[in-house]
């Protein structure tokens, strides 16, 4: 796809409107700056991932319904949540390949006058940035290179796993988010357990285990002397930012690691102001890293 005029339907899912508007706000700002047009689709529903434990068929049907709705306007879907992207991608792939299953799902959808045809693709924002917009175009939009900033990345499980359904990223050695971070001028540091899970999916089932995973990640990030942890998933962000204080209380430790959405980091590098990018919505105080980022000289 060409660089100018990239156009998608935007799929928000459940977690972002429920709790993570800082991500949506900053993502819309940077995508707009990059010339991406987002079409709102009023009729979308949950992607189905959180209910897959109850019924695989329910999940297939919910995601197929979203795909069928987006097909009506003939645009690819862009999601901010890797969980939604993964689920929609998987359903899209499975239903394109399996005629019998597709007919069965379409029998359900037809009750509401909908049909899955398999005519569009689904991309997570990171995939759209790397494949459709491209690193060159992103680099050209950087007005305030974040030189000297040391950050750590957390891609999250569903951005790349399971490999056979996602495909665009290597789960054992993820590099898309790293490349996107380095495009801002910041340095992406390596740390132990980069690909480890945030634990959000079992947060409602076992608090102690999920917060143990949060603790482990934050300690590893601190060991690497990173100034912030960069996420690109609403669920991972909730775990590391909103729940960081709960983990601190549970384990009697202090981590103090700011957690930024990648789109916030990119927005800063594009010369945008913190209040445009939802920085006041973050729970862990980002003032230190903001100060450092704003020190970076604006290119005139």
């Amino acid at each position: 796809m060409g660089v100018a005029g990239a156009k998608y339907t935007i799929y928000l899912g459940c977690a972002i409107p429920y709790r993570v508007s800082s991500y949506e706000l900053s993502a819309r700002k940077v995508l707009n700056r990059l010339g991406v047009e987002l079409i709102e689709m009023p009729e979308f529903n949950c992607c189905g991932l959180p209910l897959e434990s109850l019924s695989h068929k329910l999940t297939l049907l919910l995601s197929a319904r979203n795909l069928a709705i987006a097909e009506q306007v003939g645009l690819n879907i862009l999601t901010l949540c890797p969980g939604c992207a993964g689920t929609l991608k998987k359903t899209n792939k499975v239903l394109k390949e399996d005629k019998v299953l597709r007919e069965e799902i379409n029998r359900h959808l037809s009750k509401a006058g909908l049909e899955f045809k398999g005519s569009i693709e689904v991309k997570h924002i990171s995939q759209a940035l790397i494949e459709d917009i491209g690193l060159d175009r992103i680099k050209k939009a950087i007005l305030r290179p974040l030189k000297g900033l040391r950050v750590a990345e957390h891609s999250g499980c569903h951005l790349s796993r399971p490999r056979k359904h996602i495909g665009f990223e290597d789960p054992e050695n993820p590099k898309v988010l790293k490349m996107l971070i380095e495009a801002t001028g910041a340095k992406c540091v390596e740390y132990l357990g980069e690909t480890e899970c945030c634990g959000s999916t079992i947060a409602a089932i076992d608090d102690k285990i999920s917060l143990s995973l949060v603790r482990e990640k934050l300690l590893h990030v601190r060991e690497a002397n990173a100034e912030a942890l960069i996420t690109i998933c609403p669920a991972c962000h909730i775990m590391y930012d909103a729940n960081q204080m709960r983990a601190e209380r549970m384990f009697g430790e202090k981590y103090g690691i700011p957690v930024l959405h990648y789109t916030q980091l990119l927005g800063l590098a594009m010369g945008m102001q913190p209040n445009e990018l939802g920085f006041d919505e973050l729970r862990v105080n980002p003032s230190k890293i903001l100060e450092r980022a704003l020190e970076a000289k604006q290119r005139t």
């Binding site: 928000l12 409107p17 508007s21 949506e24 706000l25 819309r28 709102e40 689709m41 009023p42 009729e43 979308f44 529903n45 019924s55 068929k57 329910l58 049907l61 319904r65 029998r107 359900h108 959808l109 009750k111 509401a112 006058g113 909908l114 939802g278």
Partner: peptide
């Protein structure tokens, strides 16, 4: 809060249509 942040209104699922799709499950 979305209005204050100047975010577009949330998508509102057509629940009636969704219910129809799910009725045989």
């Amino acid at each position: 809060r979305r209005e204050t942040l100047q975010l577009p209104p949330l998508p509102k699922t057509n629940v009636e249509s969704l219910t129809k799709s799910l009725q045989n499950l």
